[in-house]
Amino acid sequence: MNYIPGKNLIAPDSLSRMPIDDSSGSKELEEEIEAYIHKISLQNIYTKDEDIVQIIQAQILDKECQEVKQFVRSKWPTKIKLTSDIKNYYSIRNKLSLVDDLLLRSNRMIIPKNLRPIMLNKLHAGHLGITKTRIRAKRNMWWPGISKDIELKVKSCPACVQNSRNKQEPLVASSLPDYPWQKVTMDLFKLENKWYIIITDCYSRYFEVEELVRMRMRDVIKVCKATFSRHGVPQSIFTDSGTQFQNLDSSEFRRFMKEWSFTIFTSSP
Rank of each mutant, 00 (worst) to 15 (best):
N44T: 04
N44A: 05
N44D: 13
I45K: 12
Y46D: 10
Y46M: 05
Y46Q: 11
Y46W: 05
Y46R: 08
Y46V: 05
T47M: 15
T47P: 09
T47A: 14
K48W: 04
K48I: 03
K48Q: 05
D49P: 01
D49H: 11
D51R: 14
I52V: 14
I52A: 07
I52E: 07
V53F: 03
V53M: 07
V53L: 10
I55D: 04
I55N: 08
I55G: 11
I55P: 09
I56C: 12
Q57V: 01
Q59G: 04
Q59H: 11
I60A: 03
I60M: 14
L61S: 15
L61A: 07
L61K: 12
L61N: 14
L61Y: 01
L61D: 15
D62C: 09
K63Y: 09
K63L: 07
C65K: 02
C65I: 06
C65W: 02
C65R: 03
E67F: 00
E67K: 09
V68K: 00
V68W: 06
V68H: 07
K69F: 04
K69S: 03
Q70K: 11
Q70L: 08
Q70P: 04
Q70T: 10
F71L: 07
F71P: 13
F71R: 14
F71M: 12
V72Y: 13
V72W: 02
V72D: 01
S74E: 15
K75R: 12
K75L: 06
W76S: 10
W76L: 07
W76T: 13
W76A: 06
W76F: 14
P77C: 01
P77K: 01
P77G: 06
